[in-house]
Design a protein around this nucleic acid. Structure first.
Lengths: 221, 221
DNA sequence: GACTTATGACTGACTAGTCAGTCATAGTTG
DNA sequence: CAACTATGACTGACTAGTCAGTCATAAGTC
């Protein structure tokens, strides 16, 4: 029947590497399809039949790579978030060097990182999914708090405290509420997913404006 | 066709009978139960059987008061949000008086309103639901944009522009990005629903700190 | 009795997860 | 190289279960 068509894509351009080692190609296909479906419908309403269809794969295949729907979901989040965490750590590490980067510069870099790597990519949907489904997956919330949030918060808090002491920051407000630094980013993500079609938002400008407010004082004029 | 939406067994006339009062009591019972279930599980995963059980009502009764699951959901959001919008309008209206309230004072009042009426009540879950389910209910997102967001944004933008011109604000940044005023509020809501058990956040202090940063300049010292 | 309100068993559509079977390819043999 | 066997990635029809929405019936009220 029609089945013979092109289920098995001939690897274009050369070595038909051994099929059994190629399994991971499917894995990525499934993850990509899962990103589409989960971010469009949320965890509960996403159908694995649709994920399979979108990935050009039979439903059973999904279960060769992932234990169940929840594992697929969590793995998707992990795969998408890890590289960003890596980059974030690099930026924060630079901020601890002997000759440290000014805090304002660090803030700008984080903002750029966030806009370029998250808000203006499909990863913003991942963040939305974490925010959205987090309360329903306590393990997930705990994991993200332990592995990411608490580390970032305390790194930033330390840095901001020093900045306040050395006069780089006007007050210790940011050291007490490091959440304020990411607030515009979250807002931008939410805005973009809901209202951008009514009133587009320039996320980068928003974050730059926020940084300007945070740091603006005599050091400019 | 449009008139068919006559679900309320309560005729809005002057003297409702005891029976009708009972009826509307059920309605509220159902809405309260729905708030619990929807905010715990999200729209898709919430079960009407559970809503009924929680409201001590048979499942069929729900359909006497609401057309379907989605209507119940939307009505829940409407009922919870309307009063807050009313209060918000009152605050913003005062800001337009002949002898206007200083912007900083308005901002403080909005922050108080938000913390007292939303963040520290179950209504924070409603906001989370809107943020969470909004992208999946385009009608909902459009409704909230048209009826609430766009109005609040433009009211605030006008006010902030005047404040910038009259020197009350250092720059026109807030007029260009009124989103910045609510950013900490959204962040507080998300933090509270996910991470509060690991690291409690004082939402009021956060918002006051933010306002301090926004307005802090020579007017303090 | 007539009319309103409430019930909960039932139905039908829908879906996560399974598993017996297929088949392209790798390996082996002569 | 041709023929044969072995492997396991892949398939999709199927099962078992879930849940929104319905409706025949009951209970309450005037």
């Amino acid at each position: 029947m029609t089945t013979a068509a092109n289920k098995k894509p001939k690897p274009a351009g050369g070595k038909p590497s051994r099929r059994h080692e190629q399994g991971s190609g499917k894995r990525e296909l499934i993850l990509a399809a899962a990103l589409d479906e989960f971010s469009q419908n949320g965890f509960a309403a996403a159908r694995l039949d649709d994920v399979a269809k979108r990935a050009n794969v039979a439903k059973g295949t999904i279960y060769l790579y992932f234990k169940d729907k929840e594992s697929l979901f969590q793995e998707l989040l992990r795969v998408q978030i890890s590289p960003v965490v890596g980059m974030l750590e690099a930026v924060l590490a630079a901020s601890k060097d002997a000759r440290p980067v000014p805090l304002r510069e660090t803030a700008n870099r984080i903002a750029d990182l966030f806009v370029d790597q998250v808000i203006s990519t499909r990863r913003k949907d991942i963040v939305r999914l974490i925010l959205t489904e987090g309360p329903r997956f306590p393990k997930l919330a705990e994991f993200y708090y332990r592995e990411i949030i608490s580390r970032a918060i305390s790194a930033f808090r330390t840095r901001a405290a020093r900045a306040a002491k050395e006069g780089e920051l006007r007050s210790d407000t940011l050291a007490r509420f490091p959440q304020l630094i990411v607030a515009p980013a979250l807002t931008a993500i939410m805005w973009k997913s809901m209202f951008d079609k009514f009133e587009p938002l320039d996320a980068k400008a928003l974050m730059k404006a926020h940084i300007e407010i945070l740091f603006d004082k005599e050091e400019r004029s």
